[in-house]
Design a protein around this nucleic acid. Structure first.
Lengths: 108, 108
DNA sequence: TCATTTTTTGTAGATTATTTACAATTGCAA
DNA sequence: TTGCAATTGTAAATAATCTACAAAAAATGA
């Protein structure tokens, strides 16, 4: 194995660690997804999405899975679904996303 | 191609977009890397690492490349390098990391 | 159309997180 | 031990986010 490939492999294993540990604030999620923070909070109020908030009043934190779901909701809204419609539609795809994340993280 | 594989592919192309857009605050970087915020600011003062701060006084922002470099520095310190030593050692590996990131983002 | 509901958006005042800039402390090598 | 490198502490100011109110806009259905 060449030196170069070795480093690529190190990067790969780091990336899974990276995804595992990744936790992001609402401002960054807003920039990543292009959804206003106000809207993200509203969706959470309506139980459409969730975050990792430790206690009431503390800042919201989002992991990779949270962000994935947000982007999926957004996609469905763009397709014309209502929020409730999106929630109903979403179950199957969420499961696929989760199994995909689990594959990434657990290197299965 | 099965439905399942299709979704996996969608996830993959999303991930590259995700990495491209990913921007993280100092608190999150601290949690991801396990390096105190105080230390991250010190390293930046000493020009060891950099961030995407828009203006003086605004909060620091870090992208994927920034975080990669921080983790690399940490690794070298653990191996016994001094900060200056790490900076000198790092050039070649930074280049490899960058080309690796560029491959991920540009799907080359 | 009109009324109702859903969804987005605005904002004030309080709180949390980060900033800079000072300095103190710790660790290490000559 | 002396000097430099590196980390850590902290106060006061600012930035970002919080909740809780409400208003505006968009979608739905009679």
């Amino acid at each position: 194995m060449s030196d170069n490939n070795k480093v690529q492999d190190e990067n790969h294993s780091f990336d899974t660690e990276f995804l595992e540990k990744l936790i992001v604030g609402i401002g960054e999620v807003s920039k990543i997804t292009n959804i206003p923070t106000r809207q993200l909070r509203y969706w959470e109020d309506k139980k459409i999405i969730s975050s990792l908030t430790e206690e009431e009043g503390k800042n919201r934190r989002y992991n990779y899975k949270n962000i994935k779901k947000i982007l999926l909701i957004k996609e469905l809204l763009d397709e014309g679904y209502s929020l409730d419609g999106a929630v109903k539609k979403i179950e199957k795809r969420i499961q696929m996303i989760e199994s995909s994340i689990s594959k990434i993280i657990n290197k299965q």
